[in-house]
Measured scan of single mutants.
Amino acid sequence: MTFKLIINGKTLKGETTTEAVDAATAEKVFKQYFNDNGIDGEWTYDDATKTFTITE
């Protein structure tokens, strides 16, 4: 399955996707992406659209 990440950061904005077997696996991938890029904020997940959103 394809999961999308929408980034609404102070310095970084955009979208990316990842292929994962489930939302929990995608969450781990995206959290690592947050850490690697110094993004910290509030994030949500919409199961209907398989979209994670992080807002700094």
Rank of each mutant, 00 (worst) to 15 (best):
M1V: 12
M1K: 12
M1D: 10
M1S: 12
T2G: 03
F3H: 01
F3L: 01
K4M: 06
K4Q: 04
K4A: 04
K4R: 12
L5P: 01
L5I: 06
L5S: 01
I6S: 03
N8G: 03
N8I: 14
G9M: 15
G9V: 15
G9Y: 15
G9S: 12
K10L: 15
K10T: 14
K10F: 14
K10A: 12
T11W: 14
T11I: 14
T11F: 10
T11V: 12
T11A: 08
L12Y: 15
L12M: 11
K13R: 11
G14P: 05
E15L: 03
E15T: 09
T17E: 07
T18I: 14
T18P: 01
E19N: 14
V21Y: 07
V21G: 06
V21K: 13
D22G: 01
A23F: 09
A23L: 06
A23C: 08
A24P: 08
A24C: 09
A24E: 11
A24G: 09
T25S: 13
A26M: 02
A26Q: 01
K28D: 05
K28F: 08
K28G: 08
V29R: 08
V29P: 00
V29N: 07
F30A: 03
F30C: 03
K31S: 06
Q32Y: 06
Q32L: 12
Q32T: 11
Y33D: 04
F34H: 04
F34S: 15
F34P: 01
F34G: 15
N35V: 14
D36A: 11
D36K: 09
D36F: 09
G38V: 14
G38Q: 11
G38W: 14
G38M: 10
G38C: 11
I39G: 05
D40T: 14
D40L: 13
G41L: 07
G41N: 06
G41E: 03
E42A: 09
E42L: 11
W43I: 10
T44L: 06
Y45G: 00
D46W: 02
D46L: 02
D47P: 12
A48H: 11
A48R: 10
K50Q: 09
T51E: 03
F52Q: 00
F52R: 00
T53L: 05
T53S: 04
I54Q: 02
T55G: 05
T55V: 11
E56Y: 08
